[in-house]
Amino acid sequence: MRYQEIKPATILKQYVKCYYVYESEASVAFDDTVFPSGCVEIIFNLGTGNWQTAVGDDFITTPPIELWGQIIKPLPIRSIGKNTMLGIRLFPHAAAYFLNDEVSQFNNQVVDFSSLSGKTVKQLYARLQETADWHTRIGLIEGFLLQQLSLSEGKLHKVAIVSYVMQEIRQDDFFDNIEHVASRYGITSRYMQKLFLQYTGLTPKLYSKINRFQNSLRLVTRKDASLTSIAYDCGYFDQSHFIREFKSFTGFTPSNYLVTHSPITSATANH
């Protein structure tokens, strides 16, 4: 398995957290689990294998061009054959620029992005398959993203508010309540909740929880700090609160979590 992250061009850094390449050379299947990240992803499968996600007790093969909505609970996945995945990891607020529907409609789902974006993304996929040069592929991706952004000017002001609030929430010393935050932007907390759900798929509270969980996952993966220390450093009330929340997002307690439970997620946690 190879996993590599690629930084976006400066003009896209406020929208794209990173691009990434995941390649599986094994011809046999292996299972993994994806945890909530707070991001929405568009993924192109450029290999010959199949990528599957769990739906109930079954695994279903995903489409060649995937949209991953907000994952808010552990999602089992399966890689079969030689997969080459090129992903766009969008910041939560950025997903709204590429979707006409409310982002929350896609929570805990992997759907066919080509059915939402039409022939433009299908043409992009065909061009990505025509070249094996990663620099060229990223250039094609960025051209597509810039084109889509140019068509979304009407959303700029509202999405910008969501982006600013998210920046506040991500700060290590953030302890303010949402009512106070909303008032600073001249809106009600109820309206802020509505904006968040519409443009990110999350409420401010859930986004804060996922952000805190991701910080704790990085520390748990490194295994160089005690659970009490991790709980304190990540802003949990106490260790038991940390353990409950970690288990709700992974299916494991922090002490029982192993890198082998989710090698892909562990790879991303170390970038």
Results as ranks from 00 to 15, higher is better:
Q239C: 11
F91L: 15
H180T: 11
V28D: 13
V181E: 02
H241E: 11
F144Q: 02
K13C: 06
K155N: 09
Y191F: 12
I243P: 11
E153A: 12
I77Q: 07
I42H: 06
K17Y: 11
T200C: 01
F106Y: 15
I77L: 08
G143M: 04
Y20L: 04
T136S: 14
A182E: 01
I230N: 05
T131F: 01
T48R: 07
Y15I: 04
M192E: 01
N211M: 10
L151I: 07
R78Y: 00
V110A: 01
Y97A: 07
Q123Y: 09
S189L: 04
L217A: 06
H180L: 12
N83E: 12
E153K: 13
E142L: 00
D224G: 09
D238W: 04
I88K: 05
C18E: 14
L217P: 02
W134R: 15
A94H: 05
Y125R: 04
E41Y: 05
Q167T: 12
V220A: 01
Q52F: 05
N107S: 14
R218M: 09
I141H: 03
S183E: 13
T131E: 03
G47S: 05
Q167G: 11
Y232R: 15
I138E: 05
A132H: 13
E142V: 00
G87M: 06
K73S: 15
D173E: 11
F213K: 02
H271K: 14
Q167R: 11
R137G: 06
F30N: 00
L67M: 00
G118T: 03
R89G: 08
E25G: 15
S216N: 03
N177Q: 02
Y22L: 12
K13N: 09
V121N: 07
H157P: 12
G201D: 01
T84K: 15
Q70A: 14
E168I: 06
L124H: 02
S189P: 09
Y185H: 06
I178T: 10
F35G: 00
E23D: 13
L90Q: 05
F144T: 03
L156D: 14
Q129G: 12
H157C: 11
D172K: 14
F174S: 00
E66L: 05
E245P: 08
Y232Q: 15
L116K: 06
P36M: 03
D173F: 06
A94M: 08
Q214D: 07
L99C: 03
Q198A: 13
A231I: 00
H157L: 14
A160I: 04
I42E: 03
A267K: 11
L156I: 13
Y191T: 09
D176M: 05
L258P: 00
P254R: 08
V165Y: 02
F144R: 05
F175C: 10
I243D: 13
I71Y: 04
A267C: 07
I42A: 08
Y185K: 01
M192V: 00
T120G: 08
K17M: 08
P64E: 04
V16S: 08
G186M: 02
L149S: 02
Q4E: 15
S114W: 05
V21L: 15
S266Y: 09
K223E: 10
R127L: 12
K158Y: 07
S114C: 07
S104R: 13
S104H: 12
Q148R: 11
S216A: 14
F242V: 01
R222A: 15
